[in-house]
């Protein structure tokens, strides 16, 4: 007889094996230029383990004198307070140079934590990189 906890473990195992699970484990941060904007594309889950890679990329971008940054979170399925803190750190850095840090996000879980913390009122949030670029 399969009991409920065995089925729960089965679900967990499938998560590991599914594309969703693989995507959740992989974490990628890449940068590209869109005119004056540096677009930082993020994929995966942003937490205590992965956030340092995002922080490093944001610091590097500002150190290169690029103060107009779009962080594209369309590929992010999860973010906790460590990720939020990283974004706020990036915002502080660009503000020191009168720069801008915008977010692109339509993921419900990520929008929810932004909303609960009130950060949806701190960051300009757009539905696409094109919209963010157009908003200037």
């Amino acid at each position: 007889m399969t009991v409920w906890w065995e089925r729960a473990l089965g679900n967990l195992a499938r998560l590991y094996l599914s594309n969703e699970g693989v995507a959740a484990i992989d974490f990628v941060v890449e940068s590209r230029q869109e005119g004056p904007w540096t677009v930082v594309d993020v994929q995966g889950e942003v937490d205590m383990f992965t956030a340092p890679k995002l922080r490093e990329r944001l610091v590097e971008t500002v150190d290169q004198g690029r103060y107009k940054i779009i962080v594209n979170l369309q590929g992010v399925s999860f973010m906790d307070s460590t990720g939020l803190g990283t974004l706020v750190g990036g915002l502080k850095r660009v503000k020191e140079h009168e720069g801008v840090l915008s977010l692109v996000c339509s993921s419900r879980p990520v929008l929810r934590v932004l909303s609960i913390t009130g950060l949806n009122n701190v960051f300009p949030i757009h539905e696409s990189v094109e919209q963010a670029v157009a908003a200037g």
């Binding site: 679900n11 967990l12 998560l15 590991y16 959740a24």
Partner: peptide, 13 residues
């Protein structure tokens, strides 16, 4: 830190 994702998957499941 790298095990936190596993805790999330477990609790979500």
């Amino acid at each position: 830190a790298d095990y936190i994702a596993m805790a999330r998957m477990f609790s979500g499941s």
